[in-house]
């Protein structure tokens, strides 16, 4: 009798386990990105949060693409 009760109890738990379904939809708000927040490219050991220095470095790098500014 006890075995039957335990069996019924376990069966009942297993039967209703599928009822706890989690939501599978992504909450989307129009115009707002759901992506994880990204670090700024100057927030690292090299630039230490110095945006001006980072911009200066990139500008110099971009200027290097102009071969007319090089010594030929």
């Amino acid at each position: 009798m006890l075995k039957a009760k335990i069996f019924c109890a376990i069966s009942a738990v297993l039967l209703v386990s599928a009822c706890g379904e989690k939501p599978q939809t992504v909450s989307v708000k129009p115009g707002q990105s759901a992506a994880k927040p990204d670090d700024k490219p100057y927030q690292n050991d090299q630039f230490k949060g110095n945006k001006v220095e980072w911009e200066k470095t990139l500008r110099a790098r971009a200027d290097n693409q102009n071969e007319y500014k090089r010594v030929n």
């Binding site: 992504v26 989307v28 708000k29 990105s33 759901a34 992506a35 994880k36 990204d38 490219p41």
Partner: peptide
């Protein structure tokens, strides 16, 4: 994008979150 996984950085670079 139906899951809004794209975002634009302050520098105008369009990126996306592959986890989404």
């Amino acid at each position: 994008c139906p899951v809004n996984c794209f975002y634009t950085t302050d520098d105008g670079v369009v990126l996306h979150d592959k986890d989404l």
